[in-house]
């Protein structure tokens, strides 16, 4: 008899703890949690935007998840809880749209970006132009072929290879110099910052006031550069559709645009 009483008490205790834990995790009834999946290149800008938005809407809490857009897309495909998706290229977001995972009416561009070459401030390989990237022995870091910044980089290299100014062997020479392929642009920046890489192909927006002194940026001429188009959209499985739409509207508002411009993004 004593034994089964004891067990019962233990079971009740455990149940109470579990339920209490669950209850504690949820937001206070008045507060809405908005989960935003955003491309890694948006880290600085979006953190600021989220702070502004929360100040304006005290009942909303923004939860951000920064990663390569392709990684975020996979997560959403596999059922991750996201309300808003901000991608660094249309390919990833449209892929979700084509699978019926987005609220199509909410999809629209909100920012644009360009790519650039960065080298460490000490410039160990003496790179001053994009042509120098083909020099044998250059330690280059770019994104994987799936991450937008890696996809864009390959497009740019291809365009250069088609131009006589660079020569037909340019593309292969540069790709041969790749030391590592990162799954997010932050990885590329980090390797260059650490001085382990001689150069990296990243977004212009990755040079910020904070790290400006660690890098030298080498511009990629516009005729080879790509315009990175950043679409935003509400994920279909969202539980906060109105709030999500309001957030995207804020992105496209004057205040939102100002913050994006401050971080170097161009506007659609």
């Amino acid at each position: 008899m004593k034994f089964s009483h004891f067990t019962l008490i233990i079971i009740v205790l455990i149940a109470t703890i579990l339920f209490a834990g669950c209850a504690g995790e949820q937001a206070k009834p008045e507060q809405t949690d908005l989960t935003v999946f955003a491309a890694a290149s948006l880290t600085g800008a979006l953190t600021d935007i989220a702070m502004e938005y929360e100040t304006m809407h005290p009942d909303v809490r923004i939860i951000t998840n920064f990663d390569g857009s392709q990684a975020l897309r996979t997560q959403i495909e596999q059922g991750a809880d996201a309300d808003v998706f901000l991608s660094a290229n249309t390919k990833q977001l449209y892929a979700l749209r084509d699978q019926g995972l987005m609220e199509n009416a909410t999809i629209g561009l909100f920012a644009k970006n360009k790519l650039a070459v960065i080298v460490p401030a000490s410039n160990p390989a003496g790179i001053t132009t994009p042509q120098d990237l083909a020099q044998p022995g250059t330690r280059l870091v770019i994104g994987t072929k799936d991450v937008p910044v890696g996809d864009y980089a390959r497009q740019i290299l291809k365009k250069m290879g088609n131009d006589t100014a660079y020569g037909s062997t340019y593309t292969t020479s540069v790709l041969n110099n790749v030391m590592s392929e990162e799954t997010t642009v932050t990885g590329v920046v980090a390797k260059v910052q650490l001085g382990e890489a001689d150069a990296g192909i990243v977004y212009e927006t990755d040079i910020t006031p904070d790290n400006r002194d660690k890098f030298t940026m080498i511009a990629i001429p516009d005729k080879y550069n790509v315009i990175a188009e950043y679409p935003a959209g509400v994920v279909k499985t969202t539980g906060n559709k109105e709030e999500a739409i309001r957030f995207i509207a804020y992105l496209k508002s004057e205040q939102g645009k100002a913050i994006l411009a401050k971080y170097g993004f161009a506007l659609p």
């Binding site: 390569g68 392709q70 392929e181 799954t183």
Partner: peptide, 24 residues
Amino acid sequence: FAGNFQGRTQTMPLAIYTTMQGDL
């Protein structure tokens, strides 16, 4: 430490992680 480059440093776990984001 070794980076992610097919054939040279992309071991199976790295390849799984990289390809999962494109080719499941």
